[in-house]
Simulated assay, not measured.
Amino acid sequence: MIPSIRQAYNKQFSTARYKALLQGLAGETGITPDFRVAETPVFVPAALHQQLLDAGNAINAIIARPDFKELTEAAIPKHQLVPREDAHPGFIIIDFAVTRNENGELAPRLIELQGFPSLFGFQELLARHYRRYMEVPPGMNNFGSGLDTHSYTALLQRTILAGHDPASVILLEVLPEQQKTLIDFVCTEKMLGIPTVCVSELVQEGKKLFYRRNGKLLPVHRIYNRVIAEEIEQHRALLGDTVNFQHELDVEWATHPNWYYRVSKFLLPHIQGPFAPKAWFLHEIPVLPQDLHNYVLKPLFSFAGQGVIIDPTPEDADRITDPENWILQQKVEYAPVIETPTGLAKCEIRLMYCWPDNAPAPILAHNLARLSKGKMIGVNFNRDMDWVGGSSCFFE
């Protein structure tokens, strides 16, 4: 998106350097990424960077409202309500499409948000390897808020460990060895010294939690939570009986499970601004828009894009029996703005915030980018394409 940098990058690119990048990722972690890594990072111009920061600040101001919990109480399914919720989420993730406004200028448009961690370990590794194997101008930065590698790691320690011994803090996931994000878990283990634990490995004694390692039961004082509750039920046959987190437990969370629901699609109708597409709860719309093809229907309680109706019809809306659990959101047109040797690519940028327990506000920590040449962002829409996949931004 910065023409001079893009042209220079494309000119120096070679398949050999890209293969060396992938080999470097696998060599440092012992894991081959189970998702496509893009051939290029994203070079973000200063004007777009500032718009992203402004949009992120506006959204975080809503999340920091004193009445935010009251506003989002209906977001949490009653059977998923977990006790001992803390004052604010430990992580906030906000996804923006890169678009062009009516003047043809680059502009971010909100797509999704979540009160749940992203690939904080892997993205640091990926950005570092782009610098190592590719041509990234030294004056561009992948971190947020004036951070560098050392202070970024310290921020993750504050947010995830919160002063606890790493041996008593666990990264909790559902069948982690089968997750596409396994490489991120390995990066996090190396960075923070915490073990990755499957929910099936937890042992409860009264209100205390333990995990098994080398035949021993070790205490759990804090959980770096990567569990999506729906996945526990999807894999119940493999997991068997697991700890019921709806019971009172003597454990801290980073981040508490309730924030996954509070900071989610549920919040989209409450967000206004030039960066925010129109969105409504389906049951609150008296009449459907006549240009319904310009909107998408999204179920509130789903993840990874499941259940989204891309080109809805009035009949689709009529078939929905729980309209209070759906939103209608204006479609966002991604702009093909990244020049590659095999055609233009579209881009989505994720801002990744940490919010330590004792911090007054969220802190922008890192970013994630996804490149696409298909109809939508995502692996299923970019099969057999190059210069697409997961990436990292470097900001002017």
Rank of each mutant, 00 (worst) to 15 (best):
R100T: 13
R100Q: 12
R100H: 10
N101D: 15
N101R: 05
E102F: 08
E102M: 12
E102Q: 14
N103M: 11
G104I: 13
G104C: 12
E105C: 08
E105Y: 09
L106E: 08
A107H: 11
A107F: 15
A107E: 06
P108V: 11
P108I: 09
R109F: 01
R109A: 12
R109G: 04
R109D: 06
R109L: 03
L110D: 04
I111H: 05
I111E: 05
E112Y: 02
E112F: 00
E112N: 05
E112V: 00
E112R: 01
L113S: 09
L113W: 14
L113V: 10
Q114A: 11
G115E: 02
G115K: 01
F116M: 03
F116V: 00
F116R: 02
P117N: 06
S118K: 00
S118E: 00
L119C: 02
L119G: 00
F120D: 04
F120N: 11
F120E: 07
F120W: 05
G121Q: 04
Q123L: 08
Q123Y: 11
Q123R: 10
E124H: 13
E124D: 12
L125D: 03
L125H: 05
L125C: 10
L125M: 12
L125K: 14
A127Y: 09
R128H: 11
H129W: 05
H129Y: 09
H129R: 15
H129P: 04
H129D: 13
H129E: 15
H129K: 15
Y130C: 02
Y130E: 06
Y130V: 04
Y130D: 03
Y130H: 06
R131N: 06
R131W: 09
R131P: 06
R132T: 12
R132P: 01
R132N: 01
R132I: 00
Y133F: 15
Y133P: 06
Y133R: 10
M134S: 14
E135Q: 07
E135L: 12
V136N: 06
V136Y: 04
V136I: 14
V136F: 03
V136A: 06
P137M: 02
P137D: 06
P138M: 09
P138N: 13
P138A: 15
G139H: 10
N141H: 09
N141T: 15
N141M: 11
N141F: 03
N142L: 07
N142M: 12
N142A: 11
N142W: 15
F143G: 00
F143E: 02
G144Y: 04
G144H: 04
G144V: 06
G144M: 10
G144K: 06
G144S: 06
G144N: 08
S145A: 07
S145E: 13
L147I: 05
D148S: 14
D148Y: 07
D148L: 09
T149M: 07
T149F: 09
H150Y: 11
H150P: 01
S151M: 07
S151Y: 01
S151L: 14
S151G: 15
Y152W: 05
Y152P: 12
Y152T: 12
Y152C: 08
Y152G: 13
T153H: 08
T153I: 10
T153N: 08
A154E: 15
A154K: 10
L155I: 05
L155Y: 00
